[in-house]
């Protein structure tokens, strides 16, 4: 009798946990309402915001990634592989930062670009370390390595997925339905592999290179709030910018390590 009761309790607990997980999954799968593009930006009046992201102080020392656990990965490198959390240029420019318009576009909507942004797995690291896409824009993930990877984004506002990608397998093409800055991507086969995908509703963003420079073009005249996001240092203070017709303004973001 007690054993039967135990089985019944166990079965109910399992059913509940399955249904709870299932309902979460269904909620996540619900597609966002399709956006209708508003009037295009007039290039005759559009302005530009340029600038630099800088690191105010010495960057923490990059750490060596040890790939000894998988010789296939180790063999693809002739020099030590270092972490890319802090990519700093000669003049203190900070790379791998997503600079984007946070506010000021109102209800304006934008067409989704059809061309994919590529994220490569090359030498058992993600190249590039940070990418940014528009909502529903395809992200094409390539495996250039002679080993198996799994691609596992861990979003908080989008549907989570986890796909394996053996060597020479077809590219994975996925997109994200909701804005999220930024989604960590990891490979659980190679735990040192980490990347970020920033997903924005509009095209006004840029990922900085090693010099920390960015240029955001084709902005309609207006008042904007911009922020910069870094994988370790988080989100910067907001910067307010007013852009007049055909105007170009320069701003600077500074992060402290």
């Amino acid at each position: 009798m007690k054993a039967r009761l135990l089985f019944a309790v166990l079965a109910v607990a399992l059913a509940l946990s399955l249904s709870a997980c299932g309902s979460k999954e269904q909620a996540e799968e619900k597609p966002a309402a399709p956006a209708v593009a508003s009037a295009p930006v007039d290039p005759a009046t559009a302005g530009t915001i340029t600038g630099t992201v800088k690191l105010d102080g010495p960057a923490p020392k990059a750490q060596r990634i040890r790939m000894d656990a998988e010789p296939t990965c180790a063999k693809t490198h002739t020099t030590p592989v270092m972490t890319e959390d802090y990519v700093v240029g000669d003049k203190g420019g900070l790379g791998n930062v997503v600079v984007y318009v946070k506010d000021g576009l109102g209800n304006r909507t934008f067409d989704t670009p059809k061309e994919p942004v590529v994220l490569d797995q090359n030498g058992c690291i993600y190249v590039p370390h940070v990418i940014a896409v528009q909502v529903n824009q395809p992200v094409e993930i390539i495996n250039s390595d002679p080993t198996t990877h799994n691609v596992h984004p861990v979003p908080t506002n989008n549907k989570e997925w986890n796909k394996s990608q053996p060597p020479k397998a077809e590219n994975i093409v996925e997109s994200f339905a909701r804005e999220e800055i930024a989604i960590p991507v990891k490979c659980n086969v190679h735990p040192w592999m980490k990347s970020y995908i920033a997903v924005l509703k509009h095209p006004y963003f840029k990922v900085t290179g090693k010099d920390g420079a960015f240029e955001i073009k084709n902005l309609p005249p207006g008042d904007y709030t911009l922020v910069a996001w870094h994988g370790v240092l988080g989100t910067s203070a907001e910067q307010k910018v007013t852009i007049g017709p055909k105007e170009s303004k320069a701003i600077e973001f500074t992060f402290k390590p």
Partner: peptide, 26 residues
């Protein structure tokens, strides 16, 4: 501890087989 819980994305098979390549988190 090795953050390998999702190194094999499928279940009950592993990469569609009984014996996947035993590399890294797999």
């Amino acid at each position: 501890s090795n953050d390998a819980g999702l190194a094999v994305p499928d279940w009950p098979l592993s990469y569609g087989s009984l014996m996947p390549p035993m590399v890294g988190g797999i």
